[in-house]
Simulated scan of single mutants.
Amino acid sequence: MPLFFLIPLCTALITAYLFKKGTDEIAYLAAMFTAISLILTLVLAPWQIQLGLLIIVFLITNKLLQKNESKQ
């Protein structure tokens, strides 16, 4: 399994750290770069990881929908 998707993920984590520490306009640029890097990571990730994330999203969404229906 190629691990090329870890490069933008590490870059995103570093820029997220810079965003957290920065207060200037560079922080907004770092946040934008973080979002782009995370999207690139998801595109480059192997299908097994993408499938696992998709299942997690479906489970969380299903729980949130049931929680909202019980409140009504």
Rank of each mutant, 00 (worst) to 15 (best):
M1T: 08
P2S: 12
P2C: 02
P2W: 13
L3F: 15
F5S: 09
F5T: 04
F5Q: 04
L6R: 03
L6H: 04
L6Y: 05
P8G: 04
P8F: 03
L9D: 11
L9T: 09
C10E: 14
T11Q: 10
T11A: 15
T11V: 15
A12K: 02
A12C: 06
A12M: 04
L13Q: 06
L13F: 15
L13V: 11
I14Y: 13
T15K: 07
A16Q: 12
A16F: 15
Y17S: 13
L18F: 15
L18S: 10
L18I: 13
F19Q: 10
F19R: 07
F19Y: 14
K20P: 00
K21N: 09
K21L: 12
G22A: 09
T23L: 08
T23H: 12
T23R: 11
D24E: 07
D24Y: 04
E25T: 12
E25K: 12
I26V: 09
A27R: 10
Y28K: 10
Y28P: 04
Y28W: 14
A30Y: 09
A30K: 04
A30F: 13
A31E: 09
A31H: 05
M32N: 04
M32I: 13
M32Y: 07
F33Y: 05
F33C: 04
F33R: 00
T34Q: 08
T34F: 04
A35W: 11
I36N: 01
I36L: 07
L38W: 07
I39A: 07
I39W: 00
I39H: 00
L40N: 07
L40P: 06
T41W: 00
L42K: 01
V43E: 10
L44A: 09
L44T: 08
A45Y: 06
A45D: 06
A45Q: 08
A45F: 06
P46N: 08
P46I: 03
P46A: 03
W47K: 10
W47R: 10
Q48G: 00
I49H: 06
I49M: 07
Q50I: 06
Q50P: 00
L51T: 09
L51E: 13
G52W: 08
L53M: 12
I55T: 03
I55P: 02
I55C: 01
I56D: 03
V57E: 01
V57H: 00
V57G: 01
V57R: 01
L59Q: 02
L59M: 01
I60V: 14
K63R: 14
K63G: 02
L64F: 01
L64V: 01
L64W: 01
L65P: 00
L65E: 06
Q66P: 00
K67E: 10
K67P: 00
N68C: 05
N68W: 09
N68V: 08
N68K: 10
N68G: 05
S70W: 14
S70D: 14
S70G: 05
K71A: 12
K71P: 03
K71E: 14
Q72R: 00
Q72K: 02
Q72V: 09
